[in-house]
Design a protein around this nucleic acid. Structure first.
Lengths: 337, 337
DNA sequence: CTGTTAGCGCGTTCAG
DNA sequence: CTGAACGCGCTAACAG
């Protein structure tokens, strides 16, 4: 190395001294903002990356009055055993990480235990990030609406609520439910059931769409089974339900995880899928196409969802009044129906 | 509200004015550091949270010469189709988020595409975090070793390498391989195969342990099949392999995802699991106990792993010279063997 | 026990 | 086109 023996460069002041210019010149050179002689800019930049110098992002952000980070809040609740195993979250996280990086933001991940109902306000007030993305509103609609009322850079993945809820990005869950209904009817199924917790807005919309997509004579006989979202619990629920003698010929599950549990439980009861019973899920998790039988499902476009979430958030940070977005779902027919 | 009409509190200076004290007094009151009259401290604290005031963490960190964040780098490569769907990562992430939060650190998530071999050095040089946790060394041993040579607050989840690699936390993969071997032998299996990519250190160690756990007369006949790690690719590999007429009676897979693909492929060939063939995985992902047959596997204690990763990292940040940790694996016998 | 002062590393007027 | 000076919000000596 041909360092001048003055040690590592800790700040733009060091670099300025080395280059024989002032700190503001270095600042202009490295940020690319402000007018500056082409030559000096190039010279300073060359010097900078020759020494592997990087500006202190924290100081930069402090000066600019921002944090440079976006929080992604998820119910990663292993303690409470929620969707921890749901591959949906990780997929979403991957796409969000990309989209945020492209915009120059860091991704601050925070796990949330919504025990106290002011968890969101508390987080926001710390001012650790320039914006917040919440994945899955679950039953936290009230907390989200309250926070959204006074904090604009907040976007939520989930079902769009009427009234003054937060800005959301999500699949058109009702349309998804209708797709499932029409498909099961096409398959000649008549005795139908819905598995899911309609206390969760997303699932409620899927249920509504499912009923709406059915011919009137079938609609009233649809059984609604309130099922938990985790694999373990939903499988237990399904097992008990089949053991009680229930024998529908078509089931629409609120999520793929629930659908897979249903298949497992049905097979344990000696039922053939799809011969005896058609099962359709929702999400299209990677595993859906690998099980035997492969799962028919309503696909959510997670990549597009992540893209919209970030786009919306960035625009709201910029002061725009960007509104909610719905994404069209898609029916994937595989073996389970 | 009974605000004095002076608007929201933006800094400790505002609070100081309101309380009739100096900024340093407010600083001492809110941080709890330094000597201060009990009464004033309480008074200022009360005033602060009455107004919902929070200190600017960025400024605090700038002054303290730290960032208050830890980076978690993961090969979340949907573009390259890696372990994106592997629930292992999300589980680990959840535990890491908890452990870091407990220590007062933010978790900065960054997705990594290890195309250029200086990805780690580049990230570290930005100085965005006080430390780095890398999940899964994959084939990046060289990059990790190089970074570790000059950057101390770096810990890696994965197999411990001899020589001057980074500090690691990981399961004792060799011991895990031995457990699998002994179990298959106990089951009377004689014609054995290992599915996995031994170019990845973790998998190589599992393979070595597997062979070591076998009686000499079986050892030489073990077939090594280099399998990809994703569901799709590994299932294709398995299908082709079975289709070529290979008929072992016992297989140890380098991961649960691969093991599940093996089961699917075997069943497609009309093979009964475990009657015709025993299959053992590695990880114990949540799904392992839900498939039919439920997967026998070598369990990794992810929670303990996350705990050790954070503990080690924090100690190294503090200047300690803490070394690598290995965690004992556990055999879980279910239905697939 | 509390106030004053001097930076942490950077961006940005305002002069020259 | 470039430099000097000030301040973002906070902490840590050093005085009093």
């Amino acid at each position: 190395m041909d360092d001048q023996g003055s040690g590592p460069l800790k700040s733009i002041a060091d670099l300025a001294r080395l280059a024989g210019v002032s700190v503001s010149t270095v600042s202009r050179a490295l940020t690319g903002k402000g007018a500056l002689n082409k030559g000096t800019r190039a010279r300073i930049q060359a010097l900078a990356d020759h020494h592997g110098f990087r500006m202190n992002v924290a100081a930069q952000n402090l000066r600019l009055g921002r944090t440079g980070a976006i929080a992604v809040l998820m119910p990663l609740g292993h303690a409470r055993g929620q969707q921890l195993s749901d591959p949906f979250f990780l997929t979403m996280l991957g796409y969000l990480a990309d989209a945020l990086t492209d915009r120059g933001y860091d991704l601050l991940l925070s796990r949330v235990l919504p025990d106290r109902d002011d968890w969101l306000d508390t987080f926001i007030r710390t001012g650790r990030t320039d914006g917040v993305i919440v994945i899955g509103q679950s039953d936290q609609g009230a907390a989200l609406a309250r926070a959204a009322a006074s904090y604009r850079p907040l976007v939520v993945w989930g079902e769009q609520v009427r009234g003054d809820g937060p800005v959301t990005v999500g699949t058109d869950n009702e349309a998804g439910g209708r797709l499932a209904a029409q498909h099961l009817v096409d398959r000649g199924r008549r005795t139908l059931a819905f598995f899911g917790d309609v206390g969760v807005p997303e699932f409620a919309a899927r249920h509504v769409g499912f009923l709406a997509g059915l011919p009137p004579e079938l609609r009233d006989d649809v059984v609604l089974v309130t099922s938990p979202v985790t694999s373990e619990a939903s499988e237990a629920t399904a097992r008990d339900w089949f053991a009680a003698g229930n024998r529908p010929d078509g089931i629409f599950a609120a999520s793929d995880v629930v659908a897979l549990s249903l298949i497992a439980a049905a097979q344990q009861q000696g039922l053939q899928v799809p011969q005896d019973i058609s099962i359709v899920g929702f999400d299209d998790i990677p595993l859906a196409r690998l099980t035997r039988p492969a799962l028919s499902t309503i696909r959510q476009d997670i990549e597009m969802g992540a893209h919209h979430l970030v786009d919306l958030l960035v625009r709201r940070i910029g002061g725009e009044d960007a509104g909610s977005v719905q994404i069209a779902p898609e029916l994937l027919v595989r073996e389970s129906s």
